[in-house]
């Protein structure tokens, strides 16, 4: 059992949970994820690590209640326990293995959409701690749905905000904002890291390809075990089959078959063609 030591509402239906998991906190690196089960009979839900504190032995996750299982998780209160919290899983972000000097010579841009701001945080923080100021774009539907802005502002080089309705920052989507920065405001980037809805990452990748900027995207596929055992998370990377949970979740965005990944992600949505009522259709993810 894993105790929720802190629980905060960040935006409508979006919660931050700080969870006591000493072993996970000890080993977690930027880019990795955990698998969480709320109640004892719950579904296994993959969530990217949003922060970790090795001393306190805690790991933060940010979770948006969008379906039956995520709603069950956010229904668990501060001081109560999550049934399971397994991780850290997947490969850490590539840059943590790079030579610091060569990293310092690079200009990073992180592009986050929606709850994607949460997993971007530990990456920007890691770079900040190593003396690298990365620029960050955070996009959301509207001003109320923006999360982790203050925290990011403290560690980012420049923080840019875009909202679909223009209620804060740039009026438009994150890709348009990135183009504006490069085309009109003289910004240059060597590396883009994008985390958010697949459709957003797909368009970011298409745009950065035009600029010839190397881009990494973090894939939130369907998963069960998260250890390479089931293949539910398989994606096509440069035409090769890869398992997002062990080979990823981060991949070179120019090689990702996003259309296939989106199609597979929605596999259990509105699936009515079932032979038997006992065979459940999915509501989450």
């Amino acid at each position: 059992m894993f105790k929720i030591v802190e629980k905060r509402l960040l935006a409508p239906d979006i919660w931050l949970m700080n969870v006591e998991a000493p072993r996970v906190a000890h080993s977690a690196q930027p880019g990795q994820f955990v698998i969480v089960r709320g109640p004892e009979d719950g579904e296994r839900i993959p969530l990217t690590v949003a922060d970790y504190d090795r001393e306190k032995g805690t790991v933060s996750i940010v979770i948006q209640a969008v379906g039956a299982s995520t709603r069950k998780i956010v229904a668990i209160g501060q001081g109560e326990c999550l049934a399971d919290f397994a991780g850290p899983l997947g490969q850490p972000s590539e840059f943590i293995h790079e030579d610091i000097e060569s990293l310092r010579g690079k200009k990073f841009l992180f592009i986050a959409g929606g709850v994607g701001a949460a997993p971007v945080y530990p990456q920007v923080k890691w770079l900040h701690e190593h003396g690298i100021q990365a620029d960050v774009i955070v996009g959301a539907r509207n001003k109320d749905m923006l999360i982790i802005i203050d925290e990011l502002r403290k560690i980012a080089g420049n923080l840019y905000i875009s909202t679909d309705d223009g209620s804060e920052g740039f009026h438009g989507n994150v890709t348009a904002l990135m183009k504006d920065l490069i085309d009109n405001r003289g910004k240059r980037y060597d590396e883009v890291v994008t985390i958010g809805p697949m459709i957003m990452m797909k368009f970011v990748a298409l745009a950065t390809k035009e600029y010839g900027i190397h881009t990494i995207a973090s894939l939130n596929t369907l998963m069960i075990d998260g250890t390479g055992m089931c293949g539910a998370c398989r994606v096509s990377i440069g035409g090769k089959m890869k398992f997002a949970c062990v080979d990823g979740p981060e991949f070179d965005a120019s090689l990702i078959n996003f259309d296939e990944a989106m199609r597979r992600q929605g596999m259990y949505k509105n699936k009515e063609k079932i032979a038997d009522h006992r065979c459940r259709i999915g509501r989450d993810q």
Partner: peptide, 11 residues
């Protein structure tokens, strides 16, 4: 019946 984990088998 009450499992949250989906499964699809088809006809």
């Amino acid at each position: 019946e009450d499992s949250d984990t989906p499964c699809y088998v088809g006809e």
